[in-house]
């Protein structure tokens, strides 16, 4: 497998040649099991993040544990965004899913006294279902309608909560039952992140995922196979919104509060930025992006509002200059080596 890239800036007519590392060629076959080195080559990219994520809560201090918590939440939102993107829906309103989950969990805990172990799964499903039903009509249209509608609905919902004073109005609902222990909190969200990352990565790589991606590329061709495109899009939308709703429901119990901020633009923008910076289309890129951007924004807390300016610029720079994202770059370096050859 050789890919060549012409280097236009170079005057001496060289080109960069990319060649699969021998170990990659060998380990993509059954012989991978023949040596420890090759098994490690295959296993390391999967094991390091798993072990890393499971160890992190133990080594971090209280403050950074909280940061890890929000990293995981934003990574889940970014994964949800990425699944939608791979199915051809560009969401500008992850806050809708997040907020739906958060409010559902909050309402059922506050008014009906359901414990967190009931509200979190219930809110993931109900929140996902409500978001899907709201967005169902837009699925019939191609292009940017989905982006437009997802952008405005959470912003309008904020106004509606404010105006009608339902569910606590501007004050929100406080006194939500917290999760029993800090460790449970941490490992629940980290486990959910790892499960979502590897599970949905596998799903997108299966035949089902192939159909979803095919809908993005050429829905006509998928329709021509007797497949109901809307039904599949609705499924993808439900999966993505349920992930977002789970994150929201979880955060409600962590903050012991739910209110208008759950529909804030932050929950829409940061996941997109994470997915774009990390590299859309792999889910791992989205997670990596969250692990870079969220701690970065904690470090940059001092500059306040300028953070969002930086996210905005990040989005533009990455989408124009490095549209494939960081993860693809790392992946390439891992699997291939490069050399210059004279032309």
């Amino acid at each position: 497998m050789r890919n060549a890239q012409l280097n236009s800036t170079d005057s001496k007519h060289r080109r960069k040649e990319r060649i699969d590392r021998g170990i990659k060629a060998r380990s993509s076959d059954i012989f991978a099991l023949s040596s420890w080195r090759e098994m490690l080559y295959l296993a390391a990219p999967r094991c390091i993040p798993i072990v890393g994520c499971l160890m992190l809560p133990l080594v971090l201090g209280i403050y950074w544990q909280k940061v890890l918590l929000s990293v995981a939440v934003f990574a889940l939102l970014a994964i949800s965004w990425d699944i939608l993107e791979q199915s051809g829906m560009i969401s500008l309103g992850q806050a809708l899913f997040f907020g739906m989950g958060a409010y559902t969990a909050g309402v059922f805990n506050h008014y009906f006294g359901w414990p967190p172990f009931l509200t979190i799964p219930f809110a993931s499903i109900l929140g996902g279902l409500i978001s899907t039903v709201i967005l169902l009509p837009v699925l019939r249209l191609r292009g940017i309608y989905f982006s437009m509608v997802t952008l405005i609905i959470p912003l309008m919902l904020v106004r509606i909560v404010e105006a009608t004073r339902i569910f606590g109005g501007t004050e929100g609902l406080s006194g939500i039952t917290p999760l029993p222990s800090k460790w449970l909190e941490l490992y629940l969200i980290v486990g959910a992140l790892l499960g979502a990352l590897f599970g949905f990565r596998r799903m997108m790589g299966s035949d089902y995922g192939l159909v979803l991606k095919a809908i993005r590329d050429n829905d006509r061709s998928v329709m021509n196979a007797g497949i109901n495109v809307y039904w599949f899009k609705a499924q993808a939308l439900f999966i993505a919104s349920a992930i977002g709703a789970f994150a929201g429901a979880f955060m409600t119990h962590v903050y012991m509060f739910v209110g208008m901020p759950v529909f804030a633009l932050d929950y829409s923008i940061l996941p997109i930025a994470a997915a774009v910076v990390g590299g859309p289309g792999t889910l791992a890129g989205a997670t990596l992006g969250a692990f870079i951007l969220v701690p970065l924004s904690e470090i940059l807390r001092g500059i306040g509002g300028l953070r969002i300016v930086i996210y905005g610029l990040f989005l533009v720079v990455f989408i124009v200059a490095l549209p494939e994202g960081i993860f693809h770059y790392i992946q390439r370096k891992y699997h291939q080596f490069e050399r210059w050859v004279e032309v």
């Binding site: 035949d207 192939l210 159909v211 095919a214 006509r220 061709s221 021509n224 196979a225 007797g226 497949i227």
Partner: peptide, 28 residues
Amino acid sequence: IARTFQMVKPFYQLPAYKNMIIPLYSPR
């Protein structure tokens, strides 16, 4: 009823046999 299109638009980034997965996923 199956049809072909005049303008062929396969999924270019996929190998040919993976293109066949879509019709093979059809409920039919």
